[in-house]
Nucleic acid binder design. Structure first.
Length: 477
RNA sequence: GCCUCAGUAGCUCAGCUGGUUAGAGCGGCGGACUGUUAAUCCGUAGGUCGUAGGUUCGAGCCCUACCUGAGGCGCCA
């Protein structure tokens, strides 16, 4: 028996005249004659033509929406419009029939919220199969970009005993009996009896460990799961997400920005180059979604147009202080339209970031040199003693996609900052060692993978770009 | 964690100022159909109006609490 062929391959090679076998799920069965078959290998369906007189009624009856079938036959030039080739069915095997009266999906538009509840089936829809193919492509492109640029992929720990970074609330990892944990004599929980003989958590960032790598391997990156136990209820936050964190020795803040910008553009170019079919499906979906929306709520550009625009143009680069000045002389500020005040020393609010990105520059904006008091202890202090060498990249629609900095390499300055910000020195002694012994200038950033997938797919809720989203109160599947 | 909005058939929604028997489209089911592209046509079944209380002669509609979802904010990536 011939091995079956991926539909994507059949459609690319178009070897008409050949006998082939394909396997997949029925997307539609029209006029008792035409099956739109999809096996997930690509965005496009293969049209299978059935002469029903040649088949049992029972088989014809089982060819229904999302039933799984195998088809053997000859590939021919399509006799109809809409596709180049089609498969003339000579034999059809029902691999898995479908009970339509109980099946939660329907061949019609269904809301993202409803499909989210059907996470075990939603990948069978056009939208989600495209999203997850793009997610795969982008993950692959992450590795390919760094590999091409001389970076080493580093696996930082998922369970960590280090809780000093302060990036967010953490999930505790323990094998102690939560109902009656071991206690010390003064009735505190006795972590010396826990699995790792200390309190441990799921990682909130691999950055500090990546710095260890950079101080030996030069250019490293991590790409792995990250966990935040924040009670964040937004369309841009997950409790479990994937983060990419490059760390580069001998690099200053400008090198860091150049890297981040080149990286993001590489990812976008990668899918523009290789996954246009999926982008077209999502582009069309967005246009369809926006058809009934008021003009001012629609996106100014289509998805593919937006992606091209981002890669063709330089990102805007401004300092935090310049951003404050721009905001204070902006129309919405003068008219009192902002809900929050704009004041040097206070972090930019979402509405301020949105004005900068969507109104002022109309493209991604890199904001640098934030006040030291609103940023982390490890960011390098600038000459002015007030700001640090930090940078955030803000994207239209989703806000902060990248957060990074040049790291403080001066031992005395770093220690002073840790004291100032109440960071335990003892726990991070190894981190200080990196400065004590052969330290160097270095920089890095963190990029939320789902946020960039969100931007590139044009989806609007981060829960729809990860197969099984974890959010407060929800860990289904 | 805070604010706002929503929950009516399997799905997407309509349901007037509180008033008789709860409406549509799609989907399902039964049938027709051999060039369709979200196929089309005919027929048909399907509802504890999120849950629990309350107000009222009378509640899908008003009030209270809770649950679930969405949007926004904060925290961040």
């Amino acid at each position: 028996m011939a091995k079956h062929t991926d539909i994507a391959t059949v459609l690319v090679e178009q070897k008409t005249g050949e006998q082939i076998e394909v396997k997949g799920w029925v997307r539609a069965f029209r006029a008792n004659r035409f099956i739109a078959l999809n096996d997930g290998s690509g965005a496009n369906n293969l049209q299978v033509v059935v002469d029903y007189e040649n088949f049992d009624d029972a088989i014809i009856k089982d060819i229904s929406f999302h039933a799984c079938i195998a088809v053997k036959g000859q590939l021919i030039e399509s006799q109809g419009k809409g596709q180049a080739v089609e498969l003339v069915a000579e034999s059809i095997e029902i691999l898995g029939a479908n009970e339509l009266d109980k099946y939660p999906l329907q061949p019609k538009r269904q809301t993202m919220e409803y499909l989210r509840e059907q996470a075990h089936f939603r990948m069978r829809t056009n939208t989600f199969s495209s999203v997850f193919r793009l997610r795969h492509a982008l993950a692959f492109a992450v590795h390919s970009f760094f590999n091409e640029n001389g970076f080493y992929y580093m696996h930082t720990p998922i369970i960590t005993g280090s809780d000093a970074e302060g990036a967010g609330e953490m999930f505790q990892v323990t094998t102690l009996d939560v109902n009656k944990p071991a206690r010390t004599e003064d009735n505190k929980i006795d972590y010396s009896q826990d699995f790792f003989a200390k309190a441990t958590n799921l990682t909130v960032s691999g950055q500090l460990q990546a710095e260890i790598g950079a101080m030996a391997m030069g250019k490293v990156y991590t790409f792995g799961p990250t966990f935040r136990a924040e009670n964040s209820n937004t369309s841009r936050h997950l409790a479990e997400f994937w983060m990419i964190e490059p760390e580069v020795a001998f690099a200053d803040l400008k090198d860091n920005m150049d890297l981040a910008e080149a990286f993001v553009k590489y990812l976008i170019n990668y899918v523009l180059d290789k996954y246009m079919d999926d982008l077209k499906i999502l582009d069309a979906k967005i246009q369809d979604d926006e058809k009934n929306m008021k003009a001012e709520l629609r996106r100014p550009m289509g998805l593919i147009e937006t992606l091209r625009f981002v890669v063709e143009d330089d990102f805007a680069r401004i300092t935090y202080s310049e951003a404050i000045n721009l905001l204070r002389s902006s129309k919405p500020y003068k008219k009192g339209k902002f809900e929050y005040d704009v004041e040097w020393g206070v972090d930019l609010q979402a509405e301020h970031e949105r004005w900068l990105v969507e109104k002022k520059f109309k493209k991604p904006v890199i904001v640098t040199d934030y006040p030291k008091d609103i940023k982390a202890f490890y960011m390098r202090m600038n000459e002015d003693g007030k700001t640090v060498a930090a940078m955030d990249i803000l994207f239209p629609g989703i806000g902060e996609v990248v957060g990074g900095s040049q790291r403080e390499e001066r031992l005395d300055v770093l220690k002073a900052r840790m004291t100032e910000m109440d960071v335990e020195h003892d726990e991070l002694d190894w981190y200080l060692d990196l400065r004590r012994f052969g330290g160097n200038k270095h920089s890095g950033f963190g990029l939320g993978f789902e946020r960039i997938v969100l931007f590139i797919t044009g989806m609007t809720n981060i829960r729809d770009v990860i197969a099984f989203p974890r959010t407060p109160g929800n860990a289904e599947f």
